[in-house]
């Protein structure tokens, strides 16, 4: 042994280390408190804002005729649900909107994925398409809607196309940049091991861009809802956007909020589904 070592202590062998149960209990309690705080803040913040609204409306700061207090809105909606008039109208118009949303979303998703992957993989496609995409991306899609009506008529097709456009940009841009900026090492592995191109595209490049693609899809859903409701505001005889706009014109405040709540719920639901899908598709990005 070296002379620098003056004392050697060895841990006693064969003794199981014990964990102090109080330490464990304290750690669990701390974790529970953090969770509780999170839930309380998540629930009480919206309630707090509803309370402010209630007060402002009752005191008269907000015009009660146009913006009644939430208690009144909820009571009115409750009545509409009880006699079925509200639920029936919302379900009818919601269903019509979904029939425009789903094909529009699917179309935008497919075209966006194909264009985004091509741009990400092939330099020439990227050089060719990027200027066009960058130039047209900032145009609000609803501003193109009149042109789409001229081309596709006032029926559902123009609305489906405008939704597809909104989805296309989000998916295409995020897919292309996801491929372009994914960790270089993955493609180096493919090159170093002489992996066939087809395998490289399907098993290496596209999966490496999945987190970014999923972000594009979620942004696409949000944009699709915005654009569809706007399109239905200006040009529709049915649909959730039409329903809200019509409710405003006849000053049916309950119906208006009913429509808004349906859109919000739909947004929450799809986002929740997409997050669940993401957890399945990209389990590695959680850690």
């Amino acid at each position: 042994m070296s002379s620098a070592v003056t004392e050697i202590k060895t841990a006693p062998a064969g003794v199981e280390p014990t964990v102090d149960p109080n330490v464990v209990r304290a750690a669990i309690a701390l974790r529970r408190r953090t969770m509780a705080k999170r839930i309380v803040m998540g629930v009480f913040t919206p309630i707090f804002f509803l309370a402010i609204w209630e007060v402002l409306s009752r005191v008269g700061v907000l015009d009660r005729e146009y913006i009644p207090p939430p208690s009144e809105v909820f009571r009115g909606m409750g009545a509409g649900i009880k006699d079925g008039s509200l639920t029936e109208a919302v379900a009818h118009n919601g269903w019509i909107s979904i029939q425009r949303l789903v094909p529009g979303f699917a179309l935008g998703l497919v075209v966006g994925l194909v264009a985004g992957i091509a741009m990400g993989i092939l330099d020439l496609v990227r050089f060719g398409l990027r200027p066009i995409i960058s130039a047209t991306f900032p145009i609000p899609k609803i501003a193109i809607f009149p042109i789409l009506i001229i081309i596709f008529g006032i029926g559902d097709t123009s609305k489906i196309v405008v939704v597809a456009l909104a989805v296309f940009y989000m998916v295409c841009i995020n897919t292309a940049s996801g491929i372009e900026y994914s960790n270089r090492i993955y493609r180096e592995v493919a090159t170093a091991f002489q992996v066939p191109k087809r395998v490289e595209y399907l098993r290496v490049i596209i999966p490496s861009a999945l987190p970014s693609i999923m972000t594009g899809v979620r942004l696409g859903v949000g944009n699709a809802l915005i654009v569809l409701v706007s399109a239905e505001f200006v040009s529709a005889q049915a649909g959730i956007g039409y329903y809200i706009w019509n409710a405003w014109q006849v000053l049916d405040i309950n119906a208006m909020f009913g429509g808004l709540i349906v859109i919000a719920l739909f947004g929450i639901l799809t986002n929740w589904c997409l997050l669940a899908l993401e957890r399945r598709l990209i389990p590695w990005s959680q850690s």
């Binding site: 592995v189 098993r203 990005s285």
Partner: peptide, 21 residues
Amino acid sequence: QQDSTLPWMTVAQNIGLGLSG
């Protein structure tokens, strides 16, 4: 030098990818 395993593939699939050529 850096971690070069592909995170969407199992260990077996990572080895298999190297064999695909």
